[in-house]
Structure formats: structure tokens, C-alpha cells
């Protein structure tokens, strides 16, 4: 299997602070990776750099996506090429209709692929189907993007966007935090429904709880901007038990 994403010795900074310090990670199609680590270790920074946020400055290293230099692409082109970032803090956009954004996003990708735009009927059918999987009321379509949504509703909305866009590489940044157990199950259902040999999923999470519902193939621990340990799902359980300190100490040693 070819590498979907290959990150080598990545260094990045924001506002003058170097956050990623030589991070290396390879993700293949069909795999689910979990990236764990204490607050401030750089998990969101990694996610934002992959999505192309301009505030994060790449100082060194390479990011190769499907054999191409990802860092040369604009954020919208990364999305159209199949990268999806589920934000840790999805923004509220008053006045921009949720359905409009979903449809514009789907069509931007379809145009990029040389496909015809989806028609209104097909779009609604697909959206309703995906929403029911996530146990989301269809009324969310008519609201402004994330405006007045609860924490859980925002996360479901991220997963809805992912389900509509059917990305090749999904990075979900703490999609589980702040969710009650029902919401967590709904979100996990949505993610599991997308598991596919052609698709890779990177779960960024602080807790192992999500991993009870979405079983990862690999677990990595991020500390001070680099991956200090990798293992299988048992590593997550170990972390749950012992906390992060032992790994950080081991890494510093």
C-alpha cells in the first residue's frame, strides 16, 4: 500500500514560538491513527499545518500527500484533493447558511474532479441520509453555520461535513471533547461508516474514551512537538492508566 501522508522532520512555528520540532509520521490508506498527547504538545498545530493555515509557518521538513508536496497547495486545493480537517473549535459564521456551505463545498470538490455539480434534489437526499446517521435534525441545514450550536452539535456538524465530502484523509481534532455519551456514539458511528480501505483517518484526542468506539490501528504520543512513542491501541490504555508523564520523562531521558 502506498503512503497517503508522509511527514518528515516537520518544524513549524506560530507567533514566533516553535511548536513542532521535527515531527515524523507516515499514514497509509485504510489506516486509522490516533495522536494523543498533553495539552499544548502541538496536536492542533499539526492539524492546522496539514490543512494549510497561513498563521503557522513551516520552518523545515516535508509533508507529502499522495506523492505531492502538500505545503505548496492553498487550503482550498488541499480540501479539493481530499483532505478534511474537523476543527477542535469550529467557528460560528452568522449569515452563512449551513446547507449552502455544504453544497458549495461538495460542488467545489466535484468541479475540481471534473464532475458535474450535484443538483438540489440529490444534495438534499444525501444530506438527509448522512444527518440521520449522525442523529442530527434536518433543521440544522437551514441554520447559519454553527451559530448558536451547542458544543456537541458543532462536532456533529463537522462530521456531517466530512460525511458529505468523503475525504481521502480526515484529521479530526478533538472531535470527542465535550461530547456526552450519546453524542460520542453518534460521532463514532459517523466516523466508522467512513472507514474504508481507500481512506485514512487521523484522530487527535486527549482521552482514550473515543478509542473504545473507533478502534485505531496505531497510537502515537506527541510531546513538545515530536512523536515520542508509537504503538498499537494498547498504548492508549497504558496512557489512560499511567498518564503522560512517564512517556515525557522517558523521552527527555
Amino acid at each position: 500500500m502506498s503512503n497517503m501522508l508522509e511527514i518528515k522532520n516537520l518544524q513549524a512555528r506560530i507567533a514566533g514560538n516553535t511548536i513542532l520540532n521535527g515531527l515524523t509520521l507516515t499514514v497509509k490508506a485504510g489506516e486509522v491513527h490516533a495522536i494523543m498527547g498533553p495539552n499544548g504538545s502541538g496536536k492542533s498545530t499539526l492539524a492546522q499545518v496539514i490543512a494549510g493555515h497561513a498563521d503557522y509557518e513551516v520552518l523545515g521538513g516535508t509533508v507529502t500527500y499522495q506523492g505531492e508536496n502538500l505545503l505548496a497547495l492553498e487550503p482550498e486545493d488541499r480540501a479539493r484533493e481530499g483532505i478534511f480537517l474537523g476543527f477542535q473549535y469550529p467557528v460560528e459564521i452568522p449569515g452563512v447558511n449551513n446547507a449552502y456551505l455544504l453544497k458549495a463545498a461538495v460542488n467545489a470538490k466535484r468541479r475540481h474532479q471534473g464532475l458535474a455539480e450535484i443538483d438540489a434534489f440529490e444534495f438534499l437526499k444525501l444530506a438527509r441520509e448522512r444527518m440521520s446517521l449522525l442523529e442530527m435534525d434536518a433543521s440544522f441545514l437551514n441554520r447559519s453555520v454553527n451559530e448558536g450550536f451547542s458544543g456537541g452539535e458543532k462536532k456533529r456538524n463537522e462530521i456531517l461535513q466530512m460525511a458529505m465530502l468523503e475525504p481521502k484523509l480526515a484529521i479530526l481534532d478533538e472531535t470527542d471533547s465535550g461530547l456526552d455519551i450519546d453524542a460520542l456514539k453518534a460521532v463514532a458511528n459517523g466516523v466508522n461508516a467512513l472507514r474504508d480501505p481507500e481512506r485514512a483517518i487521523v484522530l487527535v484526542t486527549h482521552y482514550q474514551r473515543l478509542l473504545d468506539y473507533i478502534e485505531p490501528d496505531y497510537v502515537h504520543v506527541l510531546s513538545k512537538g515530536r512523536i515520542v512513542r508509537s504503538g498499537d491501541k494498547s498504548l492508549a490504555l497504558e496512557l489512560e492508566e499511567k498518564g503522560y508523564e512517564w512517556i515525557q520523562e522517558a523521552a527527555n531521558a
Partner: peptide, 10 residues
């Protein structure tokens, strides 16, 4: 950035 990350051009 949020909108662009969904594929909408600038």
C-alpha cells in the same frame, strides 16, 4: 480559513 478548508476559494 474555515470556508477555504472546505474547498471554497478565497
Amino acid at each position: 480559513f474555515y470556508l477555504r478548508s472546505r474547498g471554497l476559494d478565497q
